[in-house]
Every structure is written in structure tokens, then in C-alpha cells.
Design a protein around this nucleic acid. Structure first.
Length: 644
RNA sequence: GCCACUUUAGCUCAGGAGGUAGAGCACCGCCGUGGUAAGGAGGAGGUCCUCAGUUCAAAUCUGGGAAGUGGCUCCA
């Protein structure tokens, strides 16, 4: 027997006998041998004791590789299981796994694990780590394992899902488990770990299944990395829009007056107003006609649209008006805009017709889903519907996408990706039944993206029930994926509402409807802006753009008021801090409130008719004439958030 | 909606072996008149989330409910 191993640098090593990953690594170099944690063999992750016996491409994994971290985290998860089994003999385990954040183990036992039991579990794991116990691996037959796990419903089910007849298992003392790619050979190799939380998670991720307890934690090779990660988690909290929203007095949600119903304080309202005016101007310039339509609508419209059948549980219950009329708080604006379209007979000459509105709508989101401004029960959507002929779909699509990307530049939004959201072919029940329509519209979307040369991911099961869509996905401070913008093709509603236009041939034709949102809902968008700017809004959006501070109240208040008034007269948002406090106190507050410009006015400025400017985030003081300052801030506002 | 945790002053939080509570910041007036991140001493402020139960007595113990947080599920 002879075979050769190809290493990442292209070099080859020949062997006549089977060789373990560990020996291979030692053979390459002593330090690599020590650092080796596992290997990738033809792309598959294996443990150190894996025996190579045929030609293969092998890359040794060390703590510098992402896969190394996954091996470490899997090992901690495994040791945690072994320890938990000792502490709670009746415990069962569900799924376990690792991700960017760390690792998790799903558990099930009579009495749920409480958060205050975590420190004891952590201590017990540390003890095992210190003892440096051996983690053994071997192959076992499914039958043998089925006997071992016969009283464990979760493991039995997972075992069935394993491929092949032989399953790789790991052992620590009496404890045995499977489903790991590779583990470290000894508990002593675990360096830094921390248990973070216990939370609920449905077995196999389905809400109809029992709920298990998920213990989450994280692990690193170096203490500095763990410390940095803990610090990162704290910083994320500081960037959370709810924290900043409170500190800067932007908005609040008071459960006593209504969960999920936000109140916009003057400063938050200012930001929102600037965004609303901006987006309306932008859309009007792009050919949209802005309208106002009522938040109440006869429930029949939602029965026609199909929303009632699909989403009734997430809608507010209809109001019975007593005379047979049932009014519904609208959960979306499409049927309203359809009414606008239907109000006249439409000619092909008019198309595309673009209707837009900042439409307020209500959705009865489940209480557990509500979160600050990110998930609410009343929201205002930057909504728009364009009605086009079949021939116009692609050009309209790219026109909308161009607008979106232009808007992103103005807000300096750079961290996003495109997702083509298709229906789930296995679950067609949820979707409008018309295979040909789905095939056609999905390929139209794909072609439009390809023609524009844009990268995207394709996701089945993410479509709207009436059609496929392009979603533009961003991330919140806490790392959750969320849809910022969307373009949706809809062949269904025009059918349901019998929308028509008169063509050149004098006959009636069916238009295609495109639903689109540029910045999504005001609530979610402003939550997003708070997080990307960390509360330090660029000047054009800042609720207070200029804070004017007199050095001495008696001597300089009049001048401060005059400067403030002059700024306000020119359309800037300026405030004068005339409270009876020390200068340092006011400067501090101006900084913690993240005001872009702080002007200090004293004897010098009064004499020169000038201002002393401190830009947020700097410690420089710059003396300027009033006119110089005006042209600086004017330029600043005009540039939006663009980095130029 | 499900699992865990939490809910005390406007905010952030202490405390409470059952006898109706405290700090810092914020707020109000007083003294201080200051040049770039907190001047000083004081005052006011509470349905201890809510509804029941146990008790002479409940903010504290028990149970139901609501909301918040972290997850899970969902998100037109």
C-alpha cells in the first residue's frame, strides 16, 4: 500500500502505512505538530487521531484557523454535556452546535436549568479541564448506539439522521455522544471559555415541537480574545438603539399606554421628519406621485387581496360598526394604492404609474417579538407601488434598485447584501397557486440582477405569498439580519382586484404590480440609523445641530441668543444653553448629547463678532467668523452622510 | 405565542430573615459668575408592575396576570 498526501502549498508526502493527522503534523514540523488541532481532509474536518490511508489533500488546522475555533467550541460543548450528565443524571440532550458567537447545547430535563445554576456548571467544567481528561474517539455501529440511546428520544432521532452504518462517537469517561466533526483529544487543551445564557429553543426549530433549554457559551484560545469578546458584547449593548434612544431622549415605549406603540419625543421626531422629507423629495424627483390614504379600510378589501386568509392572526381584530360594516386597521397599504389606481380608467400611455405614501399601518405582532423601534405594532412604511406593463418590469426594477442604492449612499449605508427571495417549492400551500407565474417572475428577477451585474444569494421560502422579491438585508447592532429595502413582483393582486389598462389595441390588459420599500418603516430605519451612527448623527440629521454656550450669562447671553436666532433663521437647528451652570458642565452635556457643533461665545467672540467652534468628537477649538461658520455647516448639511 | 430571567423615584440601580424604603444622576430654589467633559450645601419626588391568597400586619411569602430582556417560532 502506498499513497501520497498533498499539502496546501502543493508539496506531496508519500506514505506506505496509514498515518494519523497528529503524526503527519509532527512530521512536517515540531511546532506544527504541537499546534495541530485537527485537519481538513478533502474539505472534511477530522480529528487528530484520524488515520490517513489513501491519496488526499490535507490541511492541518491550528488555532489560527476559523475551523480551529469551531473544534475548540465543539469540545467545550461536549465537555459541558458530560459534566451536565453527571450533575443531572436524568438530563437528555438535543442538538448542539457552534457559530460565530460561540457554541450551544440544547438540554431537556424535568426541572429546567436556571440561570443561577450556570456558575456551578462552569466551575465543574473547569475542574474537568484542569484534570486534563482524555477524550477518546471511535466508530460504532448504529445498532449499538441505538441500544445505548434507546431511552433518549432526541438522540434516537438524531441517530436515524446520521448517514452510513458506522457513526463516529466521542467518549469522556462513561459519557458518549456523536454529531461532532472533530474534537480535541484532551480536555486540558481547552483554554478560555464562558457560559453566557440559558434560553428556550424548540426541538428541531419547530414551534410545534417541545421546547428545550439552550445553554449558550463561547470559547477562545487566548484570554485576550475572550476578554475582547466580552467587551464587544458590552459595546453592542451601548450601541443598541433602545439605550441610545433613552440617553438622547429620542423616543419611548410605555407598556402602560400600549406595548409596541412608540412615542416620538421632539428630538426623535426631528430626525424622522428630516428623513421623511428627504425620501418624499427623492421619490417625487424619481416620478412617484405621493398620496394620502386612510388607515381604516373595509375588511372585504383584505379578503379580496388574500391577506385576511393568510395573516388574519397578525391583524388587529376588525371593528364591527353595527350596521354590517366591518372596519379593519390596515396591516399594509397595497389595497389602498390599488384603489387609487382603480379610480380612473388607465391607459398604456400612463404606465408606469408610481404611487407612494408614508403609510401608517398596524400589525398585531406577538408580544415576545416586540423590541424597541425594531419590532412594533404601529409603523409607518415608506411604501410605493408601481403599475407597469409586462415589458416594463425589468426596466422599472432596475430603476427602483438604482434609487435604493443612491439613497444608501446618502445615508452611508454600506453593510448589506442582496437576497432573491423565492417561494418554498415544497410548501406551495402558503403561496399563491400558479406555478407558471412563479417560474416566470422568479426568473425575471434573477435576469434583472444578472443584467445589472450584482451579486446575490437565493433563498427559498422567503417570498411574499403573492410573489417573489429582492430583499436588501442589513444587520442590527445585535447582529440580527433584517430587511431594509424590498422590491416585490406581483401578478396576483392585479388579478384579484381586476386591474386593467387600455392598450394601444383598445383592449383591456392586466398590469403587473411592483411593491417596493426604499428605507422600510420609519421606526426600523431610524433604529438602524441610531445604531450605525451610534447616536452621533451626521449634521443633516442631528436633532440639535448647533449648541451655543455663553461663557458668562450676564455678559454673553444676548450675543448667544443672537447667534442662535441667526442660525435658526437660516434653517439650522440651534439651541442656546442659558442655564445657570458652569461652562465645563455645558460642554460635557453638548458632547454626551453628541451635538455636531458646539459654539462657545465669550469676550473674544463678542469683540470679533465671531464664534469659537468645537466639532463633535474632536478637542480642537477653532475661532471663526460667523459667515465662515455658516458656509462650513451649510456644506456639511448638503453632503448628507456621504464620505467625501 | 413558547422557555428562562427581570419589574423598587423621571433614569441607572441598592435594600428588604414580614412591621409601608435608599444612593447616584436628572428636577426645584439657594450660594457660587465660570474659557472647553460633572462647583457646593439643601429640597421635593415612591400604588416597591398588577390582581388575588396566607397573616394582626405583605414591597418582602404563595398563586394568577401584564410588561420588559435574552433566545426560539413568526415577520405580508
Amino acid at each position: 500500500m502506498s499513497f501520497s498526501i498533498t499539502l496546501p502549498d502543493g508539496s506531496k508526502k508519500d506514505f506506505t502505512d496509514a498515518v494519523s493527522i497528529s503524526d503527519l503534523a509532527h512530521g512536517i514540523g515540531t511546532s506544527l505538530g504541537k499546534a495541530a488541532l485537527g485537519a481538513k481532509v478533502n474539505g472534511q474536518i477530522v480529528a487528530l487521531d484520524y488515520k490517513l490511508s489513501k491519496n488526499a489533500e490535507v490541511a492541518i488546522i491550528t488555532d489560527r484557523d476559523e475551523e480551529g475555533l469551531a473544534i475548540l467550541r465543539d469540545t467545550v460543548a461536549f465537555v459541558l454535556e458530560a459534566v451536565a450528565k453527571k450533575v443531572y443524571p436524568e438530563i437528555h440532550f438535543g442538538e448542539h452546535g457552534t457559530d460565530d458567537e460561540g457554541f450551544y447545547v440544547d438540554t431537556d430535563k424535568e426541572n429546567q436549568i436556571k440561570i443561577n445554576e450556570l456558575p456551578d456548571l462552569e466551575k465543574a467544567v473547569k475542574k474537568v479541564i484542569k484534570a486534563g481528561e482524555k477524550i477518546a474517539s471511535c466508530m460504532m455501529s448504529k445498532d449499538e448506539l441505538a441500544d445505548i440511546f434507546n431511552d433518549d428520544p432526541y438522540k434516537s432521532e438524531m441517530l436515524k439522521a446520521e448517514k452510513g452504518d458506522q457513526v463516529q462517537v466521542y467518549k469522556l469517561g462513561d459519557f458518549i455522544d456523536f454529531g461532532f466533526d472533530a474534537l480535541l483529544p484532551n480536555t486540558g487543551k481547552i483554554k478560555q471559555f464562558k457560559l453566557l445564557s440559558v434560553a428556550g429553543a424548540y426541538w428541531k426549530g419547530q414551534s410545534s415541537n417541545p421546547m428545550l433549554q439552550r445553554i449558550s457559551g463561547t470559547a477562545f484560545f487566548k484570554k485576550a480574545d475572550l476578554d475582547a469578546d466580552i467587551k464587544r458584547r458590552e459595546e453592542i449593548k451601548e450601541r443598541d438603539h433602545r439605550t441610545i434612544g433613552r440617553d438622547l431622549d429620542l423616543f419611548f415605549v410605555d407598556p402602560k399606554v400600549g406595548a409596541g406603540l412608540p412615542y416620538w419625543m421632539p428630538k426623535g421626531a426631528t430626525i424622522r421628519r428630516v428623513v421623511e422629507r428627504y425620501i418624499i423629495d427623492k421619490e417625487v424627483a424619481d416620478g412617484y406621485q405621493h398620496v394620502y390614504t386612510p388607515v381604516l379600510m373595509n375588511v372585504d378589501a383584505y379578503k379580496t387581496s388574500g391577506h385576511w386568509a393568510h395573516y388574519r392572526d397578525d391583524m388587529f381584530p376588525p371593528m364591527d360598526m353595527g350596521d354590517g360594516e366591518m372596519l379593519e386597521l390596515r396591516p399594509m397599504n397595497c389595497p389602498s394604492h390599488i384603489q387609487i389606481y382603480k379610480h380612473h380608467i388607465r391607459s398604456y400611455r400612463e404606465l408606469p404609474i408610481r404611487i407612494a405614501e408614508l403609510g401608517m399601518m398596524h400589525r398585531y405582532e406577538k408580544s415576545g417579538a416586540l423590541s424597541g423601534l425594531q419590532r412594533v405594532r404601529e409603523m409607518t412604511l415608506n411604501d410605493g407601488h408601481t403599475f407597469v406593463t409586462l415589458d416594463q418590469v425589468q426596466s422599472e426594477f432596475s430603476k427602483i434598485l438604482t434609487l435604493i442604492l443612491d439613497v444608501y449612499k446618502d445615508f452611508d449605508i454600506t453593510d448589506y447584501y442582496f437576497r432573491l427571495s423565492y417561494r418554498d417549492p415544497k410548501n406551495t400551500k402558503k403561496y399563491f397557486a400558479n406555478d407558471e407565474m412563479w417560474e416566470r417572475s422568479q426568473s425575471m428577477l434573477k435576469k434583472a440582477m444578472d443584467d445589472m451585474g450584482l451579486d446575490y444569494v437565493e433563498a427559498e421560502g422567503e417570498a411574499a405569498f403573492y410573489g417573489p422579491k429582492l430583499d436588501i438585508q442589513t444587520k442590527t447592532a445585535l447582529g440580527a439580519d433584517e430587511t431594509m429595502s424590498t422590491i416585490q413582483l406581483d401578478f396576483m393582486l392585479p388579478e384579484r382586484f381586476n386591474l386593467t389598462y387600455v392598450g394601444q389595441d383598445g383592449e383591456e390588459h392586466r398590469p403587473v404590480m411592483i411593491h417596493r420599500g426604499i428605507v422600510g418603516t420609519m421606526e426600523r430605519f431610524i433604529a438602524y440609523l441610531i445604531e450605525i451612527y451610534k447616536g452621533a448623527f451626521p449634521t443633516w440629521l442631528a436633532p440639535v445641530q448647533v449648541e451655543v454656550i455663553p461663557v458668562n450669562l450676564d455678559a454673553h447671553s444676548d450675543y448667544a441668543k443672537k447667534v442662535r436666532d441667526e442660525l435658526n433663521k437660516r434653517g439650522f437647528r440651534a439651541e442656546a444653553d442659558l442655564r445657570n451652570e458652569k461652562l465645563g458642565y455645558k460642554i460635557r452635556e453638548s458632547q454626551t448629547q453628541k451635538v455636531p457643533y458646539t459654539l462657545v461665545l465669550g469676550d473674544k467672540e463678542l469683540k470679533d463678532k465671531g464664534v469659537n467652534v468645537r466639532r463633535y468628537g474632536t478637542e480642537e477649538e477653532v475661532a471663526k467668523s460667523f459667515d465662515e461658520f455658516i458656509s462650513e455647516i451649510k456644506q456639511d448639511v448638503k453632503s448628507y452622510s456621504r464620505e467625501e
